[in-house]
Design a protein around this nucleic acid. Structure first.
Length: 283
DNA sequence: ATGGGGGCCTGCCGGC
DNA sequence: TGCCGGCAGGCCCCCA
């Protein structure tokens, strides 16, 4: 699932069942995901109260009363499923365990949060809350695209002189946090910039224009509850619907949405990833 | 230093 | 129906 809007949607879904609540019991069903879990992870989680549930880039961070922070990354296929919570008038029971249920958090209030990840590109770790920013996975990440640290002057300065295609530059988490293949494709379409264009060859105006466009695409996607592809669902089981707003992603061969354009969406492969674009609008 | 490609895993879809 | 190749939202690591 998970680019920034999907991770933010998951975080918001988890808030009512996790923030301020105690983890009555943590169950860890395997020793690792992408990397080994930290030692005694289940014991270190059990009994802890979740003081805050934050997001940094595509990571969810749960600050615990123990002074540790649980770091969660959903990888490509990770999901956080909520069951047993009272939602509206309906009380949901716990469903039968499923394949790839790797970590289960039973909250004191009765809700259960299950981390399910078929491909196991996801990750969990425990780190000292005080030094969380210095965690190896977090320390080199660029500014939050919806925060004040991401400005037109910042992006213009950091794209200048770059030899790499703008598509790759925007996917680089060191430049700006949280963008993935979908939202970079949609951003470049709205900015009318070809994905293979060298980042350093953009005009200052083009580079600057990317900032409000990135903010707009991400904000719209968050408001839509993210994008649901394949079996991805929000934590509460609802489907996000931003995928209906894709103008290029996954639309190879479809007509370009720009009125009067008349071209069809094309696809090229860059660094092994598909880039979708309009050859006319983004010429 | 910077940029490109491989690899990690499983599941799904389309084509034969 | 069944098998197989290709593809997938991420990101670390190695190599040139």
């Amino acid at each position: 699932m998970p680019e920034l809007p999907e991770v933010e949607t998951v975080r918001r879904g988890l808030l009512p069942v996790m923030e301020g609540q105690v983890i009555a019991q943590a169950l860890v069903n395997r020793p690792d995901l992408r990397w080994p879990f930290p030692p005694r992870m289940a014991e270190r989680l059990t009994g802890a109260r979740v003081l805050a549930l934050r997001r940094r880039s595509k990571y969810i961070l749960a600050d615990l009363s123990t002074g540790e922070t649980l770091l969660i990354h959903l990888g490509m296929s990770g999901r956080m499923l909520i069951s047993g919570a009272v939602v509206g008038e309906f009380h949901h029971h716990h469903p039968a365990p499923e394949k790839h249920d790797h970590v289960v958090l039973d909250m004191e209030g009765g809700a259960r949060v299950t981390f399910n990840d078929a491909r196991r590109f996801g990750a969990m770790d425990l780190l000292d809350t005080a030094g969380a920013d210095r965690h190896p996975l977090l320390t080199d990440i660029g500014p939050e695209p919806l925060g004040n640290g991401f400005s037109e002057s910042y992006l213009v300065a950091h794209l200048a002189g770059k030899n790499t295609p703008i598509k790759s530059a925007l996917l680089d988490q060191h430049l700006v946090a949280g963008l993935g293949n979908i939202y970079v494709c949609e951003t470049l379409y709205r900015a009318r910039i070809h994905p293979a264009r060298k980042a350093g060859d953009l005009t200052r105006g083009q580079a600057a224009s990317l900032v409000p466009i990135i903010r707009e695409v991400l904000t719209e996607a968050i408001e839509a509850g993210g994008s649901s592809l394949r079996d991805y669902r929000q934590a509460d089981g609802e489907l996000g619907y931003f995928q209906h707003s894709f103008q290029v992603y996954g639309r190879e061969g479809d007509p370009c949405a720009t009125p009067g354009c008349g071209s069809v969406i094309g696809r090229i492969v860059q660094s092994g990833r598909s880039s979708f674009f309009c050859p006319t609008c983004q010429g």
